[in-house]
Amino acid sequence: MDEVQFLSMSYEQVVRKYKKTIGSVCVMRLKNWADAEDCFQNTFLKLYKNPPDFSDEEHLKAWLIRVAINECNRYIRKNRFHLSLDDIRDEGIDFPEESCDMSWALMELEPKYREVLYLHYCEVYQINEIAQILNKSPNTIKTLLRRGREKLRKIYGGDGI
């Protein structure tokens, strides 16, 4: 396992370093722990099998996030007719409502808003970076952010900011 090196890091080191980021992306995308685990594993397997040349760690992180999102989208398309809401509720991510935390409200948004808001507020990515990761234009990212915030406020209600 130590044979593969990614910017002076071993494969295991890369997995442990970015497990929270990639895991959160998968959980946020699928809202299901079991499915998120599969996509999490597939993402790092792709890194292991076909590692591209990374210029820096940010490049590696952005690549992992992009692959994780694609894996989640592929999983959704593949299991579109097999995913039941009951399964999601049973193994879904439960963020109880708290006065300050809006994680549960974020989970109520559509995936496209959720991704952008997560990357912007949780991973602290800039709009241009988010645009590169999601392969969208910066204006699209701005639009998604604005609409996401509006919906989030409606879901959360009141002045939660």
Partner: peptide
């Protein structure tokens, strides 16, 4: 602007890492 502490501090189970490493070695 928004408080996503719970989402940011989401704990990923350690078994995910173990299973991933195991699957990678097996595929190799």
């Amino acid at each position: 602007e928004f408080n996503f502490d719970k989402l940011s501090n989401l704990e990923i189970p350690e078994k995910w890492v173990d299973n991933t490493l195991s699957a990678s070695s097996t595929s190799k």
